[in-house]
Design a protein around this nucleic acid. Structure first.
Length: 1198
RNA sequence: GCGCGGUUAGCUCAGUGGUAGAGCAUUUGCUUCACACGCAAGGGGUCGCAGGUUCAAACCCUGCACCGCGCACCA
């Protein structure tokens, strides 16, 4: 830092240091290191994406965590990479090609050519976001960068696909799927977003065929699907229509069909809500999920009337054929009107599913797809910790350790022991819990892995209805299980019975049940209000009143929570924890995942198929096929290294699609069947492999579909580390430590990674998940390209610097809240960097060449300011460390800001100028008046009138510099995770790196030790504490740090008061004051110098006897005496009077507040002693002030 | 419908029962020898509403209102 510019210029240092870090290989993780591991896998951004503020937030957090971990001596792996983002990328490239005029549709190029274009695009744009992350300072191990379509990664994806098939979890099925007519692909449920739509509800009538002249009126939002209706459904309990079941109606469309072809049955189905519309439902099995179910049940035909592209097909009839589905809706309404069938239409608001990507309404469509039943579900369900227990539950090896929320630890030899303890506890306290075993609903409350009945049977307790559970245990030992797909009505009934049972038992008084199967509805009995609520509503809504009347008098409280099925319980922490509930809810209602996509860009499904028209055709084939395959098998075994661990070939076959669905196959092709051959990794990716060639020669073709992008993303934590081999990287860094991501992909990604982790690594993929907020603009709107409200982070970096951007975003990002982004945040970050820069610049300027950097601090010369700032540093280190451990990044930045700016710069540095800035500094330890030059031991220079340097001056100055260096070298390290660039620059520039060992900060601040709170030895040595805390008797000895704090606080109050008087009296800031101190002994000379400096006085004259002018302002220092502030010329008596009167009012109001409290007899009686004392003390202080202020006012009158 | 957040200064937000806080914005005064990307001093709040518990409530309990989000949905 030889050339120090006045302002920090980030542009001139950032690139330099990033290159320095890369050159030094400081980001590279060593899997053979002996250091403890810390790892994060990056949520891979879309390969063709550009950096957004969301990425900035996300990756800054990860970088902070990684950099702190490095400084703590951990071996850090931050594994970066990108995602191929199937649909997004394909759409993007397609659009670009169209724009370039290369194609009108992707079919123009064909699959192979189109994919070439995508790869080209990827190779051109793929690096952009990576470069941008580097600009931000991200300390990723770039040598390990991965892409989800890297050959090795693809092999993992294929391997998993085949493996899951073999486990029976992947199947092919003809199902209702969410079809996107724009991208022409199926979507998973998660890719569909519901949007409210204003539309119309159309009422049209149909004639009952068997009873001419009788009409049914049907309400629908989708008249265009009428040609696809194959039934009309009514509720069999509906008296209006029940008698019509079994008869038929005439479907109005397509109008041109003969009447007999339009007869559809009237069926009875419980699903029909007779409150809604007219109570008559049209059933369109081919275009509605619910109707499909009804169709299955009643064996109805399905007529597809909407084609894949969203246009009506031939079956829709002459009027609608070829029309877009929305145009068709209008036309259908016109047609109904024309036929006289339309009765009315009314405005109606309903929710319609939209394709998240293409933003068009999805079409439920019958289609043959690959589905996955999720693996690893059981372990995944319970692994996320909930509020209430601290996660230290370990049921393995039959030993149990549970730490309750209260910190109380319960230990037992086994779950069994705990149950016994629970029972004993319950007997003693006569507390009752309840277990249900309900065969009908399959609902059971269990303890541990066993049902309660089983668990307690050996104790002779039969038909357990009531079982006691230790309150601390309940949260972790009881859960209610049921089939996730069961309708939850029986559960609710059960809860009612539960409450009734408790009520009758007359023992249990407050119950809180939380079970995911109840959608976390709660049952709560409040003993104060004597009210029970369930799911937020009063119990009256659920239970007959007479049951409530039996409620006993309350005196106990029990919590019952769902939980614990395995050793994984609570091992993973979500931050903030509330997302655990969202996760649980989703896990509780898992639906099979449609994993195939009708796209080109992605992992092509490694399955080859051939359809056989009949058995003969089939039997003609297999021998040769078998022979060929066994040849290849042999060949592959020879050529593939055995440790690879992949079985080479596996038949996948499926003689029939799901039987029940046959009727819905659009291509009724007789009794044919299909053989599927799944090919495992290493081969499917490369088509020139002979195996594939042979298979294809035999007439098999590869499934044209690709896998959902998330089907590759969910393997990210281990597929990036060399899985399926047990690599050293995996051994060292899996499970990863933290995952940082947005809550919007909790289902898409987080939950699925957890399941994959358990399935393939037998272990959770990460220990902590931090969910960031969503970045919004100042008005709270989501950032979006169309709104143009998303600033380019690179522009911000160019304007303010990467550190400023990081700091600004972190400061504005409280845990778990959305962030309203404003450029002012970044400006604040920039200002802060500048402050840091200048504070260091100040240190450079006051130092001199002959003084060492980071000299030893000599306790002998330590002033109270020095001690104070060291204690504040200690506090800051503690606060920042705690905040980071709790993922409270905005708290950490707030602490750093406060400490550095308000405490260090505003007070400490300013005061230190008394020592550093002027030569006329007397000895602090002399204890004599500096105004008397004889006493100070220095003689005035005859020529200048200046006092010569006391002998020990340079030692004192050096000591102050040493304290400054101590504080700065710690502060810079505390800042490093947040502000990597400027801190590296300062670390070297200030010379703090020179004393450090190479691997601990000598080369780079990245490995400098993370500051630790000052220890007792340090504090005692420097008189920051009276003695080691454990030995000190607090009663006798006033704690030193408290004394230091008090003194400093007193001085700050005094300084502020004098400054205030200056300001209120209109004394210009640049005008030096001449103060008078009136007291029995003069102020400590060192203190006096500082006071002069801080309030802008050129002298404080000590007088034993002083008669102030009328209205002369006066302040009362905490160390006694009075300080007068004389004004040359006229005193503005009125202004001073106003000031004092105002102050008086405030004092009086405070006094009355405290007095009122103290006057309350209950207060003195019930309040804790220390609080009482505090209040009394406060009263005394205010009363003192009152006296002073009154005196001052009096003086003004007199 | 169910659930989850939120409601504190003009704005963005801290604040887990004991004297209402920060940053920004704003007003005033300062080219004070680190920093005008700065220094100093001020002004500004019945803590969404209503009850309850408590000696004491922004904080705990109950209800309500409004804002945001998620899930599930009836055509």
């Amino acid at each position: 830092m030889s050339e120090i510019s006045k302002a920090y210029e980030p542009q001139s240092v950032e690139d330099k240091w990033y290159q320095f870090w890369l050159d030094g290989k400081f980001f590279v993780a060593n899997e053979h290191s002996a250091k403890p591991a810390y790892s994060i896998v990056i949520p891979p951004p879309n390969v063709t994406g550009v950096l957004t503020l969301g990425h900035v937030l996300n990756n800054t957090i990860q970088d902070i965590l990684c950099r702190k971990a490095r400084m703590e001596g951990k071996e850090v792996l931050w594994l970066p990479g990108t995602d191929h983002a199937g649909i997004a990328t394909q759409v993007q490239v397609e659009r670009a090609l169209k724009k370039e005029g290369k194609i009108k549709h992707r079919d123009d190029l064909g699959r192979e050519k189109f994919l070439e274009e995508v790869w080209k695009w990827k190779n051109e744009k793929g690096g952009i976001i990576i470069q941008q992350l580097k600009k931000l300072g991200a300390s990723c191990d770039w040598t390990r960068e991965r892409f989800t379509m890297d050959p090795e990664y693809s092999r993992c994806v294929q391997r998993v696909f085949v493996d899951l098939y073999k486990k029976g979890l992947i199947y092919r099925g003809k199902r209702m799927v969410n079809w996107c007519p724009a991208s022409l692909t199926a979507l998973s449920d998660e890719e569909v977003v519901m949007k409210e739509q204003k539309s119309f509800l159309y009422y049209f009538k149909v004639e009952v065929a068997e009873i001419p002249g009788t009409f049914l009126t049907i309400a629908t939002t989708r008249p265009e699907t009428i040609p696809g209706d194959t039934a009309v459904a009514v509720n069999p309990k509906d008296p209006r229509y029940a008698h019509l079941i079994g008869k038929h109606v005439v479907r109005p469309l397509p109008a041109e069909l003969p009447r007999e072809q339009k007869l559809i049955p009237i069926i009875g189905d419980e699903h029909v809500d007779f409150e809604f519309g007219t109570g008559v439902l049209k059933v369109t099995p081919a275009h509605d999920k619910a109707d499909f179910e009804i169709g299955l049940w009643h064996k109805l035909a399905a007529i597809e009337v909407i084609a894949a592209n969203g246009q009506m097909n031939d079956a829709a009839g002459a009027d609608l054929r070829g029309l877009d589905r929305f145009k068709a809706r209008k036309v259908a309404v016109e047609k109904l009107t024309e036929l006289g069938a339309l009765e009315k239409e009314e405005p109606y608001t309903n929710n319609v599913g939209f394709s998240e990507r293409a933003d068009v309404p999805i079409e439920p469509r019958l289609s043959e797809q690959w589905f996955l039943k999720y693996p690893g579900v059981e372990a995944s369900k319970s692994c996320v910790a909930h509020e209430g227990y601290k996660s230290a539950v370990n049921l393995s090896q039959k030993t149990v350790r549970i730490v309750s929320a209260t910190g109380k630890e319960i230990s037992g030899k086994s779950i069994h022991d705990l149950r016994k303890a629970a029972l004993a506890y319950a007997r003693k306290h006569r507390i009752i819990g309840v277990s249900f075993k309900n065969e009908d609903s399959g609902i059971e409350i269990r303890v541990g892995r066993q049902s309660l009945s089983h668990a307690f049977s050996h104790l002779g307790v039969a038909n357990i209805l009531a079982v006691a559970v230790l309150p601390e245990l309940i949260r972790s030992a009881v859960w209610i299980s049921s089939e996730p797909h069961e309708p939850h009505n029986p559960m609710v009934k059960l809860v009612h019975r539960f409450i009734a049972a408790l009520s009758l038992a007359g023992e249990l008084h407050s119950v809180l049940i939380t079970a995911k199967e109840f959608y976390d509805g709660t049952v709560l009995y409040d003993h104060r209000t004597k009210k029970i609520t369930f799911g937020g509503k009063s119990l009256e809504a659920h239970l007959p009143k007479e049951k409530l009347d039996t409620q006993p008098a309350p005196n106990a409280c029990i919590n019952v929570n769902n939980l614990l099925s395995s050793v994984n319980v609570g091992k993973m922490q979500f931050h903030p924890q509330r997302w655990a509930k969202v996760y649980d809810h989703w896990m509780g209602g898992l639906q099979d995942w449609c994993v195939s996509r009708q796209l080109w860009w992605g992992h092509r499904i490694p399955v080859w198929t051939k359809h056989f028209a009949n058995e003969k055709e089939y039997w003609g084939e297999p021998e040769s096929l078998q022979d060929e395959l066994s040849d290849f098998l042999q060949m592959l075994n020879d050529s593939v290294p055995s440790h690879h661990g992949f079985p080479c070939v596996k038949f996948l076959w499926d003689q029939q699609l799901e039987k029940g669905l046959q009727e819905y196959r659009p291509d009724k092709d007789g009794d044919g069947f299909t053989i599927f051959i799944g090919i495992e990794p290493s081969f499917s990716a490369a088509h020139d492999y002979p195996l594939v060639e042979k298979i294809e020669k035999a007439g098999f073709t590869q499934d044209p579909d690709v896998l959902d992008t998330w089907f590759s993303s969910w393997l990210w934590p281990f597929a990036t580390m060399g899985w399926p081999e047990q690599t050293d990287t995996l051994k060292k860094f899996y499970p990863t430590t933290d995952l940082v991501t947005g809550p919007d992909i909790i289902f898409f990604w987080v939950a699925r990674m957890i399941m994959a982790g358990y399935e393939y690594m037998d272990e959770l993929p990460f220990q902590n998940v931090y969910f960031t907020g969503i970045i919004r603009d100042k008005q709270g709107r989501k950032m979006s390209k169309s709104l143009g409200n998303s600033p380019d982070p690179l522009d911000l970096i160019a304007k303010f610097g990467a550190d400023a951007l990081r700091f600004g975003v972190m400061r504005a990002a409280p845990l778990g809240q959305d962030i309203l982004f404003d450029e002012q945040n970044v400006e604040l970050g920039r200002n802060f960097c500048n402050k840091l820069w200048n504070a260091c610049r100040f240190r450079q300027m006051v130092g001199s060449a002959d003084l060492p950097i980071q000299g030893e601090i000599d306790p002998k010369f330590l002033t109270s300011d020095d001690k104070w700032i060291l204690l504040k540093l200690d506090t800051a280190i503690r606060e920042v460390t705690i905040a980071l451990n709790e993922y409270k990044f905005s708290d950490a930045t707030a602490t750093l800001y406060r400490f550095f700016w308000s405490e260090y710069c505003d007070w400490y540095v300013e005061a230190s100028k008394a020592v550093l800035g002027s030569a006329r500094v007397p000895r602090a330890d002399s204890g004599v008046s500096p105004e008397s030059s004889e006493a100070s031991g220095a003689t005035p220079d005859a020529a200048t009138g200046m006092v010569a340097l006391p002998e020990n001056f340079s030692a004192r100055k050096a000591n102050t510099l040493a304290v400054i260096d101590f504080v700065l070298s710690h502060t810079i390290r505390l800042f490093h995770p947040f502000l990597p660039f400027i801190t590296e620059e300062l670390w070297h520039g200030m010379g703090y790196s020179t004393d450090m060992p190479d691997n601990q900060g000598g080369k780079t601040i990245m490995f400098a030790p993370w500051p630790k709170p000052l220890n007792d030895d340090f504090k005692v040595h420097y008189s920051l504490a009276a003695s080691h805390l454990k030995t000190v008797d607090l009663k006798d000895e006033c704690k030193l740090d408290e004394q230091i704090e008090r003194d400093m606080f007193g001085r700050q109050k005094l300084v502020i008061e004098i400054r205030n008087i200056r300001s209120q009296n209109g004394i210009a800031s640049n005008k030096k004051l001449k103060l008078v101190y009136h007291g029995s002994a003069d102020i400590n000379p060192h203190e006096k110098e500082i006071l002069k400096l801080l309030v802008g006085a050129d002298c404080i004259e000590h007088k034993f006897d002083y008669h102030p002018a009328k209205g002369e302002p006066v302040v009362y220092p905490s160390f006694g005496g009075k300080i007068f502030i004389p004004r040359e010329g006229l005193i503005d008596v009125a202004a001073e009077k106003t000031r004092l009167t105002k102050e008086l009012e405030k004092i009086e109001s405070e006094i009355s507040k405290v007095e009122q409290k103290l006057a309350n007899p209950n207060f003195a009686q019930k309040v804790p002693a220390n609080v009482l004392e505090e209040h009394k003390q406060r009263l005394v202080e205010w009363q003192n002030k009152l006296a002073h202020t009154k005196a001052a006012l009096d003086a003004m009158r007199g």
